[in-house]
Computed example of a mutant assay.
Amino acid sequence: MLQTFSSSNFHQICDQLAALDNDLSAIIKAHGYPPMWTRPNTFETLVHIILEQQVSLASALSALNKLRKKTIDLIPENILSLNDEELRACYVSRQKAVYIRALALALANRTLDLESFEKMADDEIRARLTALKGIGNWTTDIYLMFVLQRSDIFPIGDLAAVNALKRAKTLPKDITREALMEITVKWKPNRTVATMILWHYYLSSPLRTKLSRKFI
């Protein structure tokens, strides 16, 4: 059975996590419930997530808006019609242009079907997405969390989530990824919502200088 969450149970899950974890409870008491971040299951959404790799969210949104204006309809066929110069004018780096074209081609050729992911297990979705050039675990995690509302994802490659976790629990800077993942086990099967609480903390506290996400 697929583990998901929705607007109807999001606050209830937040309360359950707060009851389990005093640090998450303190965040909610100080800053309120986090937003339930969602995005539609579209090519444009995946392009947006790719653009967010290793840059600020503002920079990624600026590039996305340029692409929207250039293509009118941001669909695979319209992206494939753009040359390198046109993509660069939309603030898309050469590397990310390769990634976005690979995704567009897979969708245009129907070797990838986003609709079918809605009934597919997380691991299978991850295998199919990470087979594409430029899509790694971080991009897949964000897709699973924001688009499909899969409930048990902790994006270990996300610096904002990791830094918020370290600060919330006063953890050493050099703590290992394995040790961090062990801490998140307590939140199963709701690690996605726990992560949204941590992002909310990151955005609401002095910890935030600017929100940059980096996949590892």
Rank of each mutant, 00 (worst) to 15 (best):
D123S: 15
D15W: 04
D123E: 13
K29V: 02
Q53C: 05
I125K: 08
E124F: 09
L2I: 13
E77W: 00
I175S: 01
Q149A: 15
M1I: 07
T176L: 11
K166I: 11
L112I: 14
Q3W: 08
F10V: 13
P189C: 12
M145S: 04
V193N: 00
V162F: 03
N41T: 06
K169E: 00
G157F: 04
L57A: 11
N137W: 11
T4L: 02
D113M: 11
I50G: 01
R101C: 11
Y33N: 07
F146D: 00
R88N: 13
F154I: 07
E77R: 13
L129V: 10
F215V: 00
D73R: 12
P34I: 12
K66H: 15
L171H: 01
E44H: 04
P172G: 05
Y99M: 06
S25K: 11
L57I: 14
T42M: 09
K186W: 01
P34D: 08
E182N: 12
D174N: 12
F146R: 08
D84E: 14
L107K: 02
T170K: 10
I142R: 10
D122R: 14
P155H: 07
R191P: 00
R208I: 13
R191M: 11
F215Q: 03
D84Q: 15
P172R: 04
S8N: 09
R88E: 03
N190M: 03
L132G: 06
S7D: 09
E182F: 02
I75F: 01
L211I: 08
L64Q: 06
L144W: 05
D113Y: 11
Q149F: 08
R101L: 15
L165N: 03
T176D: 07
A19V: 04
L132S: 06
D141K: 06
A30L: 08
Q95V: 12
F215K: 04
L198S: 00
R167A: 14
Y99D: 03
K186Q: 12
Q54C: 13
H11V: 05
K29D: 03
P189R: 07
W138R: 05
I197K: 01
L51I: 09
Q149T: 03
Q53D: 05
I142T: 12
I197F: 04
H48I: 04
A89M: 13
T184K: 10
V55R: 07
D123A: 15
H11F: 08
H48K: 12
A179I: 03
E44D: 06
L74T: 03
K66M: 14
N190K: 06
R39C: 08
D23F: 05
I216T: 06
S6C: 10
A26S: 11
L107S: 06
D174Y: 14
I183M: 12
S116W: 02
I142H: 04
E52P: 00
H48L: 10
D21W: 06
K96R: 13
R126M: 14
G136V: 07
V147K: 03
L64F: 08
K29Q: 14
S116Q: 15
T195K: 06
T209E: 13
I49D: 05
V162Y: 02
L80Y: 00
L2P: 03
